[in-house]
Design a protein around this nucleic acid. Structure first.
Lengths: 223, 223
DNA sequence: CGTATCATTGAATAGACGTTCAATTATCGT
DNA sequence: ACGATAATTGAACGTCTATTCAATGATACG
């Protein structure tokens, strides 16, 4: 009764894709070996055969999720902006835009956050991912801090990047619990006024200009 | 073999406390009727008898969690501060301090956030709680915006409170995944410089002053 | 004191799940 | 073409779970 064979790597990817489909739809708690097997069109026994255990399947799914997620795109449209403040705001806008454009991926990542609270291995991967995400903001934040040295004396780039990342992750939480109420432009306006230099010129880009988050790369982004 | 009886309300509270103990320790996924019964020192059959179903037990636990959680304390020490900016920073400090002082409660709330992504009733309760939390910031934020009208022209109090709440919730996420790296003072310094008026006087309270989050009330905080 | 009520117990039930494994057969090397 | 290898299947197993329920006895009330 065995069906057609396939090389190890290809079958693993097939199973991982099926696992992503199920997990994105039903959540981590609702992801069972039976459902993954059904989604992949395979026998349930194949999953333990290729991944050993369900836990290892989910860890592999997490790795796959993080790998297929571009940490942060500072694309040419953003780099072209002269003012560091404008680049900051454009980055914020781009990252917040993903919260509504990639709900499934973000919800699944959210599931893994929760799993990471009590699972050491998941937590380690998430910790690393968070650090990568903060680091990706560093060039822009360094330039931003350097552009207003007297104002941000004593503020570390580490600290500000953590604040920015916290804000984005907090927006992710709110956008998942209360998507109706989530008003990106309203929040960005508030954020922009806090970032902008006080007496200075207004931001050189309007908030209604949209900086598209590198849609052509096909890559998606973390939280 | 039946043990001693107890009035309905008292037994429900006993079971809820046991459920909280288990859920705080093992997470929502690891909370079973058997464990709750064992923690309460009761027979497993009593839980469905008093709560109908496990789902209703967990919904009652969520209600209990939110009820025993003070939304936001703007205590006398904070109200005494003259500058709205100082009050904002003191509130931020107070709320962030809870992230490390009440880890169990916060981790459980986090679990419910995740549950709320796919459960309508949980989501509704969380949405309401988020709105309450934002509203609690409103008086302070209104005063803050009024203190720098020219700078924050066009910024709504709704928007800024959402930004502040997002930041705090994002800090909660980071503090749970990467507690080691969580540096409250560093983040507060960055936040303070973004809130402060630019040419203005420095904040009248030092960041090393600790505003204790109304420890005497015994009430605990959201998130 | 005696009786009806009902909270309580603990075993039983049914279902879902992860994992194991003997049987089967597609695939490859020879 | 043929046998060896091993991927694949599907059923079986054990475990864990929520839920049900008949039996029990504590408690309130007459």
């Amino acid at each position: 009764m065995p069906g057609p064979r396939a090389p190890e790597a290809q079958r693993r990817e097939q199973i991982l894709c099926a696992a992503y489909d199920v997990a994105a739809r039903e959540g981590l708690a609702g992801t069972t070996i039976l459902q993954v097997a059904a989604a992949a069109g395979l026998s349930p026994g194949l999953i333990p055969f290729h991944f050993g255990t369900k836990r290892q399947l989910l860890l592999s799914l997490l790795d796959w999720l993080l790998e297929t997620t571009t940490v942060l795109q500072v694309g040419p449209e953003i780099q072209r902006l002269r003012s560091p403040t404008d680049r900051m705001i454009a980055l914020l806008r781009q990252e917040m835009a993903r919260l509504s454009s990639e709900p499934y991926r973000i919800r699944l990542t959210f599931d893994f956050w929760t799993a990471g609270v009590r699972d050491e291995e998941v937590q380690a991967r998430m910790r690393e991912e968070f650090a990568r995400y903060r680091q990706a903001f560093r060039p822009t934040i360094d330039a931003f801090l350097a552009s207003q040295p007297e104002r941000f004396k004593g503020v570390t780039a580490e600290g500000l990047s953590a604040v920015v990342v916290s804000f984005i992750k907090g927006c992710a939480v709110q956008s998942m619990i209360d998507p109706e109420h989530f008003d990106m432009d309203e929040y960005l306006t508030a954020a922009e006024r806090m970032l902008s230099s006080l007496g200075g010129r207004p931001a050189t880009i309007s908030l209604s200009d949209s900086i598209h988050p590198a849609a052509d790369t096909g890559a998606s982004a973390p939280m």
